[in-house]
Design a protein around this nucleic acid. Sequence first.
DNA 1: AATGAATGAGGCTTCATTCAT
DNA 2: GATGAATGAAGCCTCATTCAT
Lengths: 208, 208, 208, 208
Amino acid sequence: MARNQQPWATRTARDRSDAPARGRLLDAAETVFARRGYGATTIADITAEAEVSRAGFYVYFASKEEIFRVLAVRVRDAFLAAQDVPGVDQDDVREVVGASTAAFIAAYARHLPLLRLLEQQAQTDDDVRAVWQETQERPIHRSARYIRRLAAEGRAAPVADPLAVARAVGGMSIQFARLTASDPSGYDAAVRDVTAMFLHLLGIGPDR
Amino acid sequence: MARNQQPWATRTARDRSDAPARGRLLDAAETVFARRGYGATTIADITAEAEVSRAGFYVYFASKEEIFRVLAVRVRDAFLAAQDVPGVDQDDVREVVGASTAAFIAAYARHLPLLRLLEQQAQTDDDVRAVWQETQERPIHRSARYIRRLAAEGRAAPVADPLAVARAVGGMSIQFARLTASDPSGYDAAVRDVTAMFLHLLGIGPDR
Amino acid sequence: MARNQQPWATRTARDRSDAPARGRLLDAAETVFARRGYGATTIADITAEAEVSRAGFYVYFASKEEIFRVLAVRVRDAFLAAQDVPGVDQDDVREVVGASTAAFIAAYARHLPLLRLLEQQAQTDDDVRAVWQETQERPIHRSARYIRRLAAEGRAAPVADPLAVARAVGGMSIQFARLTASDPSGYDAAVRDVTAMFLHLLGIGPDR
Amino acid sequence: MARNQQPWATRTARDRSDAPARGRLLDAAETVFARRGYGATTIADITAEAEVSRAGFYVYFASKEEIFRVLAVRVRDAFLAAQDVPGVDQDDVREVVGASTAAFIAAYARHLPLLRLLEQQAQTDDDVRAVWQETQERPIHRSARYIRRLAAEGRAAPVADPLAVARAVGGMSIQFARLTASDPSGYDAAVRDVTAMFLHLLGIGPDR
DNA sequence: AATGAATGAGGCTTCATTCAT
DNA sequence: GATGAATGAAGCCTCATTCAT
C-alpha cells in the first residue's frame, strides 16, 4: 500500500510478482510453515510458493533455520503489537482487563500456527528460544506490572502473587485462544469468561 | 524354558538387558524423541539407543510415524493414569483440589517433552490428533464434572460455567507445569498458587 | 496322487498342509513367479504362499536362484512331456502334423508364464540357459528329424532345409500360442491355420 | 552464447562428451539394461555409465520404471523406423518381401536385448505393455495389409487368412532373428529361407 | 539479482540370510 | 525339520546447497 503513496511511481501494482523477492519468500515461508509444520517444509516448498527459483532462496537466506529466525521475529512483533489496545480508559479496570484479554486471545488465535512452531523450534534453536521467551513473557510481565499497580493503589486484591496471577491468566487465555482457533464462534464467550475469571482473581466482583 | 536346562550356562547371551526388542525400541524412541524432537530424530538414532540393528526396527514398526503413534498411546495412558490420586478424602474439597492439581502439574511436567511432540504431531497425523485430544480433554471434562457436582451440592459457587472454569484451571496448570519443568524448585509454590486460584474460582475461600 | 496307491497308507489327503513342505514351496514358487515375475518375487512371497516360515525355505533351497533352477527343470519336463501325442496313426502325415501342432500350441500356451521367465533368466544364469535351450531346441530337432524322414521317403517336398522349416514352424506356433494364451477362444483356428501352413511348407496340399 | 566471449577459453569444462545429461542417461540406461537385464540394473549402474551423480538421475527421471518407459518408446520408434525400406520396386513382390524380411530380421536382431526386456516389463507395467503391443502388432498388421492387397489384385494366393499368414511370418522371422543374434553369420541364410517360405505361403513359386 | 543444472550427504526401507531354540 | 527374531548389505530417494552463467 505504501507503494502507491508515491505519485511519481509509474508501475501499477501487478500481482505478487513485483513484490520484492525477499518479502515474497518470507510470506511464502509463513504460509508453508503454517500448513506443513517446520520439519516437513522444504526449501523447495517455500520457493515454489514464492514463485522463485530454488537457488534464489540463497540470495536472501542462508538456510531454513535462518529464514525461520527472521520469521520468528516478525511473528513476535506482530503478536506483541496486536496487544496494544489504544483508546481505552485506563481508569476503568474492567475495561482495561476486558480489552487486553480480548486482544490477547484474538492475537494468539490468529498467530497460533506460527506460535506453535516458535515454541517447537525454541527447543532446538537458541536464537528462536530467546524470541519465544520474549513472546511468552512480555505479556505476562506487563500484566503483572499492571496488577501490582492496581494492588498498590488499593484497586484490586489479588488472590495470589501478582506474577502468579498474571501467569495463570496467561495460561487460561492461551487455552481459550486455542479453542477459539478451532472454533471461532466461541470467541465472545471465551473473552467474557476469561475476563470474568481474571477480575475475580483480582478480587474484583462482577459488573453490578 | 530351554534356557534353564543348562544350569551352568551364564545366561545365553542377551546382555542387552533382557527386555524384548520391541519394548527397548519404544523406550529408546521416547528417550530420543524427547531429546531431539520429532523431525530431527532418525530411525538410526532410535535403533542405536535401543542397541538394535537398523533393520530390526522394521520387524516391529513400519515407520517413524507408526512408532510415534504407539508411543503416543503409551504417553496418554501414563499421563492420565498419573492423575488418579488414591487415598484422598472425597469430602474435603480443598484436599481433592490440592491433590489433583499437584498430580496434574507433576504429570504434565514429567511428560512435557513428549506431550509437546504429541501436540506438534497432532497437526499432521490424524491418529495422533485423536490421542492428543483425549489427552487434553479428559482431565478437563473430569474436572468439569467434579465442579458441576460441587455446585449442585451447594458446596461451590463457580465464577463461570463449570466447563469454562475447568478449562481455565487446566490452562493455568499447564502454564505452571511448564515453569516447573524448567525450574523444578518452583513446584510447591506452583501447586499452592494454582490450588488457591482454583478454589477461589470455585467461590471457596482460603483455608481458615 | 501316487501317495494313495499304497493301500496301507492311513492318512487321507488333508488340504495342502500335509503336502511335504518342499513340494509346497515349489508349487508356491511357480504360482508366485508366474504372477509377479522373477525380479519382483521375494522369498517372503513364496513362503507366504506356501504357508511356511521364511527360514523354512532354506531347509530345502539355498536361494531364489536355486529354487528357480529346480522349477526350470520341472517346467521343461512338463512342457516336453505334453508333446508326446500317443494314439496317432504315424502313417497319416496330416494327422501327425495336426496332432503335434495342437499339442505344441496347447503346451506352450499353458506354460507361457514360466517359459517367459525361463527365457529371461537364461540370459543371466548358465544352468537355466542350458535348460531353456533344451526346451527350445528339442521340439525343433524332433520336428526336423520327422521332416527329413518324410522327405527321404518321398512323402513330402519341403520348401527349405528341414531344420529351417522346423524352426519356422516352431516360430509360428509360438506366435499363435501367445495369441491363444491371451485369447483362448482362438485356439482351434490357430491350430487349423498353423497346421495348414506347416503342411504347405512340406509341399503337401490341403486335405482334398 | 556467453561461452564465446572468451575466445581463448578451451571450452568451459564439460569433458563428459557434451551430450546433455538426460541423453547420456538414456543411452547409459539402454546399455546397462541390455547388459544386465532389468531387475539387476540399479540406478547407480546407470549413473555410473552416464558419468552423472546418483542424484543427477532424479533431475530427469523419477525412477527406474520411468526411464525404462521412456526408453521403451525410443526402442519402439527405432525398431519400427528400421523397417521402412526405401528404394524398393513396389511392383516386384519378391523384392518387397525379401527386403522387408531382411529389414525385420536385422532390426529385431539388433534390438533383441531391449525388445526382450520390453516384453518382460510389459507383464508388469501397463504403459510398457501398450508400447510393446504396438511394437509387436504394427509390423504384422502392415504385412497383413500388404498380403490382402496382393490377394485382391490376384498377385498372390495366400494359404490362409492374410492376418494369420502375416502373424506366422512374423513368428518365423523372430525365431530366425534370435538365431541371427546369437550367430550373425547365419543372417543371409535366414533371410533367404524366411523369404522363400513367406513367398511359398503366398502361393508364389520360387524365382524362376 | 536470478536461475538451471548438478551433486554430496544422509535417511529410509527391503530383503536374503543366519541362528538359537 | 521348523521357526521367530534379528541383521548386514544394498538400493532408493530427497534435500539442502553450490556454481557457472
